[in-house]
């Protein structure tokens, strides 16, 4: 009696994809805030913080909120401002709204944790952004998403819905890793002497720490490693969970599952996008990516990920056309950064 076919509503697939994306975004936003705090240069705090707005391509949204480009304003914009659609509370709100529509599908434990996490994070006081409390707040945000991830791993039914959930998460994760690299690019100081090089490496270590990859990198890095090795690690290492190439490989496997195990048609355009992404990452040495302009390359990866998400949407969610688009996020659920 357990052989009943369980078709997945297109709306549920889309909801899972986006719930995972929003949550991954929340975690990474906390990582970015944390690393930005570490980069804060005395006397130039505003500039350090505004780079966060730039790498998220939020300049326009930031200006629309009528904020001056100062450190406190940027922190407020991302951690407290529910009216900013790219803030942590707004992303959590969107994740919870998706989870609410998914309640028939996800586990009770997933729903409950998200419900409580959302409530806690939408009640952050401005004081929690001050001084050393900011870093602790970032830890709480990360842990909230990690609790979600663990509960999902341990309780969410592994049928095709899980594939869509993972695809959303991996696309977002790959995208966020490119942004984390980019923040370094924005603050890059031109080449200088040995002392400069050490200072620069210190900043790269912060990037690695933000990505939870510092120790792993030390294990695999050659003694004479350079910043390019860090870039290569974050982009192409096949064992590091946040590397773009590993995310891409997992996406390919998931699309293969949808095609083979669940007999879904329409995966081919998405699989082609994945192949292009991989070719871009592994087709030439990282040294040449860096020398040709890393920012430009990362932009290209971000564009490819947007197109991959669009192909998945076209193939599997396109059937879902709400008559009354009242859901929070609604059509904006196709939103992309950059």
């Amino acid at each position: 009696m357990t052989s009943r076919e369980t078709p997945l509503l297109a709306r549920y697939a889309e909801g899972l994809f986006w719930m995972a994306r929003y949550l991954e975004r929340v975690e990474n936003l906390a990582r970015l805030v944390d690393v930005t705090q570490g980069f804060e240069t005395p006397g130039r705090e505003a500039e350090s913080w505004f780079s966060l707005v730039r790498i998220n391509a939020d300049e326009e949204g930031f200006a629309r909120r009528g904020l001056a480009p100062g450190a406190d304003e940027v922190k407020h914009f991302y951690l407290l401002d529910q009216g900013n659609p790219t803030s942590i509370p707004a992303n959590l709100e969107a994740a919870r709204t998706n989870a609410r529509t998914l309640r028939p599908l996800i586990s009770t434990e997933m729903w409950m944790q998200l419900n409580v996490f959302h409530r806690d994070m939408t009640a952050i006081s401005p004081e929690a952004l001050q001084g050393d409390r900011l870093s602790r707040l970032c830890v709480r945000v990360k842990e909230g998403v990690q609790a979600h991830t663990g509960i999902t791993e341990g309780t969410f039914f592994r049928d095709e819905g899980w594939c869509f959930y993972q695809l959303g998460r991996l696309i977002e994760r790959a995208d966020q890793t490119t942004r984390l690299l980019d923040i370094r690019y924005h603050l890059l100081v031109p080449q200088a002497g040995e002392e400069r090089r050490v200072a620069e490496l210190t900043q790269w270590f912060s990037v690695l720490r933000a990505a939870a990859g510092y120790h792993a990198f030390r294990r695999v890095a050659q003694p004479g490693f350079t910043p390019t090795d860090v870039v290569a690690f974050l982009l192409t290492d096949m064992a590091f969970p946040r590397s773009v190439a590993l995310c891409v490989e997992q996406m390919e496997w998931l699309l293969g599952q949808l095609r083979g195990r669940y007999k879904l048609r329409g995966t081919v355009p998405a699989l082609e996008r994945v192949e292009e992404l991989r070719a871009g990452l592994t087709g030439r040495p990282v040294e040449s990516l860096v020398s040709d302009g890393l920012h430009h390359f990362l932009d290209g990866v971000q564009r490819d990920l947007i197109m991959l998400a669009a192909e998945i949407g076209t193939a599997f969610f396109r059937d879902w056309r709400p008559l009354a688009d009242t859901a929070a996020g609604g059509q904006g659920q196709s939103q992309t950064q950059g």
């Binding site: 009943r4 997945l8 509503l9 309640r103 949808l258 879902w320 009354a324």
Partner: peptide, 30 residues
């Protein structure tokens, strides 16, 4: 929906064609 183990659908999840009701799934209509 959970206790029955069936999909919870909203109006736009369903469509009628040839006087039959279908739901929109990732694998097309069912």
């Amino acid at each position: 929906a959970r206790e029955m183990g069936v999909p919870l659908v909203e109006g736009p999840d369903l469509e009628v064609a040839d006087d039959r009701v279908w739901m929109r799934t990732t694998a097309g209509r069912r």
